[in-house]
Simulated assay, not measured.
Amino acid sequence: MWDISTGFAVIAIIMLVGEIISSKTGGKLPQMFIVATLFLFGYWTFLPKDILTISGLSVVAEICKIFILIHVGSMFNVKSLIKDWRVVVTTLCAIVGILALVLTIGTVIFGKDMAIIAAAPLTGGGMAAMIMNEGAIAIGKSALGVVAFVIFIMQGFVGFPVTAFFLRKEGERLVEEIRNNPNLIKESSTKSEGEQATSKKKIYEYVPTKICTPTYYLTVMGVLGCLGLIIFKLLNGAIDRSIVMIIVGVAASQFGLIPPNPMNKSDSAGILNLALFASFMSGFADTTPASIGQMVIVVFGLLIIATVGILLFSIPVGKKFGYSTWMASAIGLNCFLGFPYNYNLTNEAVDVVAKTEEEKTYLTEQMLPKMIIGSVVAVTLVSCIVAGVLVKML
Rank of each mutant, 00 (worst) to 15 (best):
T364R: 14
G309R: 04
A349Y: 04
L312V: 13
V299F: 07
S268L: 02
W326G: 01
A275F: 06
W326T: 01
V353Q: 02
G293T: 12
P369T: 04
P289L: 13
T307A: 08
Q294A: 14
I315R: 06
S266C: 04
I292S: 06
A354E: 06
S314Q: 10
P262G: 01
K355L: 13
F336V: 09
L333T: 06
I297W: 15
A354W: 08
N344A: 15
K360W: 13
I373K: 01
L302G: 10
F336P: 04
N347D: 11
N347V: 06
G301V: 00
S314T: 14
Q366R: 11
V377W: 06
V299D: 11
D351M: 15
V299K: 09
F280D: 04
G293R: 14
S266F: 01
L311W: 05
S324D: 07
K265V: 03
P260E: 02
Y343P: 09
V298P: 12
L274I: 13
G301Q: 03
K355M: 09
E357K: 15
C335G: 14
C335W: 01
S279R: 12
A330L: 07
W326M: 08
I372W: 03
M371I: 07
S329I: 10
Y362C: 10
V377L: 06
I373H: 02
G374S: 02
F300M: 11
A306F: 01
M327K: 13
L345E: 03
V352Q: 14
I305Y: 05
